[in-house]
Computed example of a mutant assay.
Amino acid sequence: MRKILLAVFFVFCVSVNTFADGELPRYLIDGCFFNELPSGMSNEYRMTITLSDQDGNHIWAIKGVKLTDEQKRKAVKKDDVPNADFWIKLAKDREWLIEMNKANSMSKKHNIAEGDTIGQFSVKDVDGHVWDNASTKGHALVLNFWYIGCGPCIKEMPEISKWKDECPDVNFLAVTYNSFDEIKNIVKRQNFSYTQIVDNKTLWEMFNVFQTPTTILIDKNGVVRKVTIGTNDYKLQEMFKAIKEVSAAR
């Protein structure tokens, strides 16, 4: 009986250069790019992650396939693929999130919820300042999880940066697993004023964040008061209202 092709699609927007039609290969498999599926793969069981740019161009990254040397020899040359390293890293990051979510589901780890007390943490920002339970105690804390391929994350940056101006006593941390070099142009362009925590996966795993943007409000005693997944005008208004209330509480 022929095996069923399993394709699970996760669509993400990517802030990369725009490519003309036909320039991008269709598939990314085992670190190699292809215009067509390699011979021998058509009936294989696999998971496909759809990586898309903001103009609708995409590459299908096929997970869990180990190519043979013969198949690799028929791949598109990496030097001929625009931003090849970027797409490869993006696929790896997406696979990491999928595996983390799968592991947490199997262990029945619940997502962070309102009323939970956060655990111990310690991270450094881009300037080397340490943020931990002790340094944040006594002030409300807002964590905004994002990455450079999340269009809605980038779009909301100017709006959520206004919160910092209106609530100066609150600690606002932006958390991404991207590097500083990868985010710096976006942060500058969007006037994103949050303190940036980069190259970090600890807080993603601690809070079991899988979707972006995710914004978490923690009160002065380390208790989660609000969790918002995704973004729209209503969600932004409700989060900002909660931040002001927590900030004002004694």
Results as ranks from 00 to 15, higher is better:
residue 162 K to D: 01
residue 39 S to V: 15
residue 193 S to Q: 07
residue 82 P to Q: 13
residue 83 N to Y: 09
residue 127 D to Y: 13
residue 178 N to V: 07
residue 205 E to F: 05
residue 152 P to D: 03
residue 227 V to P: 05
residue 247 S to D: 04
residue 105 S to Y: 08
residue 165 D to M: 11
residue 231 T to D: 02
residue 42 S to R: 01
residue 8 V to R: 13
residue 225 R to N: 09
residue 110 H to N: 12
residue 99 E to Q: 11
residue 5 L to I: 14
residue 179 S to Q: 08
residue 6 L to R: 13
residue 157 M to E: 05
residue 87 W to S: 11
residue 200 N to R: 14
residue 245 E to D: 03
residue 94 R to E: 10
residue 38 P to T: 05
residue 162 K to E: 00
residue 215 T to D: 00
residue 196 Q to V: 04
residue 129 H to F: 12
residue 171 N to E: 09
residue 25 P to F: 01
residue 88 I to S: 07
residue 135 S to W: 01
residue 139 H to D: 06
residue 123 V to H: 11
residue 207 F to L: 05
residue 92 K to Q: 12
residue 236 L to A: 15
residue 105 S to Q: 12
residue 240 F to I: 09
residue 92 K to D: 14
residue 118 I to M: 11
residue 33 F to N: 07
residue 52 S to A: 11
residue 42 S to E: 14
residue 145 F to I: 07
residue 102 K to V: 07
residue 136 T to H: 07
residue 8 V to D: 12
residue 78 K to Y: 13
residue 201 K to S: 05
residue 180 F to P: 14
residue 208 N to H: 08
residue 86 F to I: 09
residue 89 K to S: 11
residue 54 Q to F: 10
residue 126 V to A: 12
residue 143 L to T: 02
residue 56 G to D: 14
residue 164 K to N: 04
residue 214 T to V: 03
residue 154 I to D: 00
residue 160 I to G: 00
residue 114 E to W: 10
residue 28 L to A: 04
residue 134 A to E: 10
residue 14 V to K: 11
residue 85 D to L: 14
residue 111 N to H: 08
residue 174 A to E: 00
